[in-house]
Simulated assay, not measured.
Amino acid sequence: MSDILCITNRKLCGEDFLSRIEKLAKAKPQGIILREKDLSKSQYEILARQAIDICAAYDTSCILHTFTDAALSLKAKSLHLPLSLLKQMTEKERKAFSILGASCHSVTDALLAERLGCTYITAGHIFATECKKGLPGRGVAFLEEVCKSVSIPVYALGGITPENKKEVMKTGAKGVCIMSSAMTCAEPDSYLAKLDSPK
């Protein structure tokens, strides 16, 4: 089974966005996080409904992002949130999701996310990346520290490539997240296969 989470960013996508989601879903990552934070709730809900249907056709998990109300309204079972939004959720809301993730940037974040019932977290950014221009990566030592601090799966985020994935996995991370490459690679099938192979 794949250990890759693909994160969307339609602004980086050079083709029809739903076609890209379909190609990614077909490539069978662990899941696709629909992270289109700039949309309105209603716009996001329309897009999420389409993305969920596409992912379901390929038995790939579609993880909604940021819009808790839309996720609850669509009866989605998977949600990923910035920690600030996770903290605002009620326990009942958190329990509505069988997969609940949060973005963490420190050991303190990771411990809080675990305490609030997250089933996994993302930790980043690990390496320098275009998305965080000018900000140095936190590095694999940071990632290892996060992995050791919690008992839930940790997915590394930021500048992950087939060349550095092996180093990342040695820290105890469960898997990796990709965004820019997921949106721009020529052949998602072969790119994800290449990224999945170095264990």
Rank of each mutant, 00 (worst) to 15 (best):
S61D: 13
G134C: 02
F97R: 08
Y120F: 15
M169Y: 13
L192R: 02
H125E: 00
A51V: 13
M169K: 15
R49M: 10
A96Q: 15
R49I: 04
E22A: 11
N164Q: 06
A48T: 09
I121D: 05
L12E: 02
I99N: 10
K87R: 15
A173F: 05
C62E: 02
R35W: 05
L135W: 01
C13R: 07
T90A: 11
Q43F: 03
I178Q: 09
H65S: 11
K165S: 02
L192F: 03
A70S: 15
K174I: 04
S84Q: 14
H105I: 08
I54N: 01
G159S: 10
K132Y: 06
D196A: 15
H65M: 09
D53H: 12
Y58H: 15
V146N: 06
D109F: 06
P136L: 04
I52L: 15
S40K: 14
L74D: 09
L39W: 07
P82V: 10
L83N: 11
A76T: 07
G159E: 10
Q88V: 03
V146T: 01
T66W: 14
I33Q: 12
F67I: 04
D69V: 05
E22R: 14
K92H: 14
A123I: 05
A71R: 05
A156Y: 01
C6H: 00
K23Q: 14
L34W: 02
S181C: 10
I32Y: 06
E22D: 14
L74E: 09
P136M: 04
E144I: 09
K28G: 00
I178R: 07
T66C: 07
E130I: 03
L12F: 11
A186D: 14
L64S: 02
L195N: 02
A27W: 03
A25L: 10
A102M: 01
T8R: 03
E114V: 00
S180W: 08
L74W: 08
D38A: 14
C185N: 11
T119Y: 00
R115A: 15
E22W: 03
E163Y: 11
L116Q: 04
G175R: 02
I99P: 01
P29S: 08
I52F: 02
L195T: 02
H105P: 04
A156N: 03
A186H: 11
I152P: 06
A113E: 03
S197Q: 13
K165L: 04
L116R: 01
G139L: 11
L111G: 08
D196T: 10
K148C: 06
D69N: 13
I33L: 15
L34M: 13
K170L: 12
